[in-house]
Amino acid sequence: MKIKSTRFGQLDVEEGQILHFPNGIPGFLDEKDFVHIPHEVGSPFSFLQSTTEANLSFLLVEPFAFINDYEFVLEDKVAKELELSQENPPQVFLIATVKEKVTDMTVNLLAPLIMNGVKRIGRQVILDKPEYSIRHKLIPEATSPTEIAKGGL
């Protein structure tokens, strides 16, 4: 199946690579089908591209690469809905917002994306954690460009 993407150009995707978000994503409730596109091997970044809206893609970040103690309890209802199990553990991603500089990007800690990569379903959940910010700066202000180049935070 061919997908048009403003960011990636034309993509040729197998039906089995499509990720279904049965509830859509808040702000885009009609968008239910996406493709998850890795950034580069070993990169903590990836992209979620809508299959129907060429302009709609999200930059995703693996939280555990950056945030030391990021944790939450997934509700049974969500685990069931996403058919998660010991064999199908959840994949967790944060949606990133880049306004100007990439190094100033923020991530939404309060509403991670939870995906079942085997069953190809996902949803954005809102955590019961008021201490988690919707706009958490991913790279601390004090991190120098040299540190970034070396790959440490």
Binding site: P44, V98, T103, A149, G152
Partner: peptide, 16 residues
């Protein structure tokens, strides 16, 4: 839409 051309510089970034 945002300019992500510099994302490649961050791909090796990891929490120490």
């Amino acid at each position: 839409p945002s300019d992500l051309s510099e994302l490649d510089n961050l791909k090796g970034l990891r929490l120490k």
